[in-house]
């Protein structure tokens, strides 16, 4: 992660904090910034943020762990999020999720051993009339059956 960066993690975190100077209640925007920069929110940022924002480390830790989005470890190269909301369930989302788990050999929230694919569940992508819906590396896809999911994962892998 540090390849190409001469700055220390602490300095990079401080730069993100500075970029949000003057914003009210800025911890969430800062954490989004950290995740965008590092790909996850490392434990090492907790004391830096606590000091910069003048709040306790427990407060920072509490916020990071409350929200599903903030990852403790980097995701795989391809991140697949399968919607398990009711509207997608009505058109076979549970079947699709079971297929993805079998195909990848991982459970929800896990990454394949080589670090290729992370499989996540998500409750609603707002595409409820065109389910089952899946997000692959942030891009939304509708009407995804098992074959289409395999194709999408293969395409993402080839990139």
């Amino acid at each position: 992660m540090t390849v190409g960066h001469s700055l220390s993690i602490e300095d990079r975190v401080r730069a993100i904090v500075t970029a949000h100077d003057g914003e009210r209640g800025r911890l969430l925007p800062i954490l989004h910034g950290i995740q965008a920069e590092f790909g996850y929110v490392d434990e090492a940022v907790v004391p830096v943020l606590a000091q910069e924002l003048n709040i306790s480390r427990a407060d920072v830790h509490g916020v990071i762990t409350f929200y599903h989005d903030f990852r403790k470890a980097p995701a795989g190269r391809t991140e697949v999020r399968v919607c398990r909301g009711e509207a997608c369930q009505a058109v076979g989302a549970e079947n699709l999720m079971a297929h993805a788990q079998r195909r990848l050999g991982v459970s929800t929230g896990e990454t394949t051993p080589g670090g290729d694919v992370t499989l996540e569940q998500v409750f609603c992508l707002g595409n409820c009339a065109l389910g089952p819906s899946v997000q692959v590396n942030g891009r939304l896809y509708g009407r995804v059956g098992t074959e289409r999911l395999d194709t999408l994962m293969a395409e993402a892998d080839a990139r």
Partner: peptide
């Protein structure tokens, strides 16, 4: 402001907590 994957933040007081930079 962007949420972070917590359904409960659609509840108004939880959303306010989140906007304040806290657990929702």
């Amino acid at each position: 402001r962007v949420g972070a994957g917590a359904y409960i933040c659609g509840e108004e007081t939880s959303m306010l907590e989140s906007l304040e930079g806290k657990r929702g």
